[in-house]
Design a protein around this nucleic acid. Sequence first.
DNA 1: TCTCCTCGAGATCT
DNA 2: CTCGAGGAGA
Length: 311
Amino acid sequence: MQNLKRSNKGNSLIDIIKDFVVVDIETTGLDPRYDEIIEISALKIRDFEIVGTFSELVKPTYEIDEFITELTGITNDMLNEANEINIVLPKFMEFIGNDIIIGHNVNFDINFLYDNLLECNENTLNNDFIDTLRIARRVLKDLKHHRLDDLTMYFNITQRDKHRALNDCKLTLEVYLKLCDVINNEFGGIEELKKSFKSSKNHTYIRAKDIVAATNEFDEDNLLFDANVVFTGALEKMTRKEAMQIVANIGGHCQDRVTKDTNYLILGNLDYAKNVKDGKSKKQKYAEELKLKGQDIEIISENVFYDLIQK
DNA sequence: TCTCCTCGAGATCT
DNA sequence: CTCGAGGAGA
């Protein structure tokens, strides 16, 4: 594709700070190369309080489409009266100064601003920034989604109907303050959070031995009871982890790989695995080999597995 | 068995 | 970026 380096762009920080600016923009789409900024807003924060507000519509080169009007409530009529980007940007830059920028998925906003600034022949946008999305994903691991709407819902903050930049700044500010509370009260403090980002070995590997049965009441008639079970490939209806939990609850024993004790190999979808050439993983090949030698091992499809766990 | 590497998919912003 | 797969090497 394209090699957009954006040199001198600021660094992504993980921190609790009391002085900063919250930034949000509205655009005509998601791609900075083709889409335009139609609104820029910012809040200046000192000692966790709002001390200044910036909010301006920006007149784009092309008319905006219905989808964006529906999403934001911004119309072409409103934009016709607005200033163009080369007028608004310098004022915005003066407003934010050297402050650290906070935003939700803030790279989106910064990349748009950075590229537009470059086109207007201004300086580069080199402020450091803090991304509430990045922090939320780390400290609220149990949440399935971390969109701004999900977080305002989670924290019982007012819901938004349309996407307007200034309102979204205010919501992002509240989310950031709530996240700071979570970091302090539940995560063990900001240093603990920083540490969790520093250690590069955050990649968690699901190990069969980590799955323990949630019950002692086993159905001893189930074929999977006391059987050794291995999965290969991705299942359609659930994750590997969920499937292993079900097996454990039936009284089966999950393994990470096929061994001489394995009784069932369950085949998921291997399409995604580029290094599996002929459609069979190493687990499957080894299982077939063992079966030929007379081992009590069944190679079953995902659907047969679902039948087995029904009973 | 344990640790690390690679790769694809999905998430998030409008 | 983060997660969850397969796989290599010690």
